[in-house]
């Protein structure tokens, strides 16, 4: 009996086969992690280099290949923040926010309404209208730039934020409409029917029942719109002409244009700042974001 007492306690000596298997697993894991680490580093290296370089002096920037600054300085941040214009970089950040916030809200509201209509109701011409939405999704943005520009010029909206806000507030971003429709299709209709039996109107059903269930998708929509608008360069470049109204994407380019010898450390420092909001928002909302893009979040 004594000889058997160690069985099942986890303390029994390892057999030859067990040791062999364990060695094999370890080698395999080491190999996989090495490959992952190398490829991952290649992807993230430009970002690391940029952050490192933003603390370098302009002179050191191209003399040393290392991303670690020899003498770290925040001078790039201080000078970059001042900019070569009468405005500080903070002003441009506020401009960006002023573009982004109404645009994100408008997108969320309009996309929900349009997607709800397409996903849940039958109406004449639905097929053609939906095909149109999908067609705009496939159309390259560039194609519509000139007609759009002419349109907004004739209305007199140039050099204002309206050309950036209004199309989104009218569900102009077909991608988001499509995304919300797909998400809605995966949600069973029973809850909405139960709400109708409970006496809710169509709008009440949307607000009290559908929107809460759509939350993961809507958060993804808002995140995407936030990041894309933050990074959008072409839109503001075309429609906004006065420096006072520039968002950060244009302000960054501004410092390249106006200085004769480019102060790269300033540009990089401001680029790091520009990236910060998107990254922060992404990491904060990562959980919902993933839930939203992998559609069908409601479990029975």
């Amino acid at each position: 009996m004594d000889n058997l007492s160690h069985i099942g306690t986890g303390l029994e000596p390892k057999t030859e086969l067990e040791l062999k298997l364990r060695r094999k697993t370890r080698i395999s894991a080491a190999f996989r992690y090495t490959v992952l680490a190398v490829v991952g580093l290649m992807m993230i290296y430009p970002l690391i280099w940029m952050i490192g370089a933003s603390f370098k002096t302009n002179a050191e920037m191209f003399s040393s290949p290392s991303f670690w600054p020899k003498e770290a300085t925040v001078q790039g941040y201080i000078d970059g923040w001042k900019t070569s214009t009468p405005y500080t970089f903070g002003h441009f950040f506020l401009n960006s926010l002023w573009i982004i916030i109404p645009k994100v809200i408008g997108t969320a509201v309009s996309c929900t309404l349009v997607a709800y209509g397409f996903a849940r109701f039958e109406f004449p011409g639905k097929k053609i209208l939906f095909a149109t939405v999908i067609a705009t999704l496939l159309l390259p943005n560039v194609v519509t730039r000139i007609p759009q520009y002419l349109l907004f010029r004739d209305i007199g909206w140039l050099d204002s934020f309206l050309p950036l806000w209004v199309p989104s507030a009218l569900a102009g971003d077909a991608f988001f409409v499509f995304m919300v429709i797909q998400f809605l299709r995966a949600i069973p209709r029973d809850m909405e029917e139960a709400a109708r039996v409970d006496g809710a109107t169509t709008l009440q059903t949307l607000i009290y029942i559908v929107v809460p269930m759509l939350m993961p998708a809507l958060i993804s929509v808002c995140l995407f719109q936030f990041m894309w608008t933050m990074n959008d360069f072409l839109g503001p470049l075309i429609y906004i002409s006065s420096v006072e109204k520039y968002p950060v994407s244009l302000a960054l380019k501004l410092s390249i244009d106006t200085t004769e010898a480019f102060a790269w450390n300033q540009i990089l420092a401001m680029s790091v700042l520009t990236l910060a909001p998107s990254l922060t928002v992404f990491f904060l909302a990562q959980k919902y974001f993933i839930e939203g893009i992998s559609t069908g979040g409601v479990k029975g």
């Binding site: 029917e193 109708r196 809460p212």
Partner: peptide, 20 residues
């Protein structure tokens, strides 16, 4: 009449409780 005005109540196969 819309369902809410018919004076009915319904129990669904998969319960259809409001998940949130």
């Amino acid at each position: 009449l819309v369902p809410g005005k018919r004076g009915i109540a319904m129990v669904f196969q998969n319960y259809a409780l409001y998940p949130h």
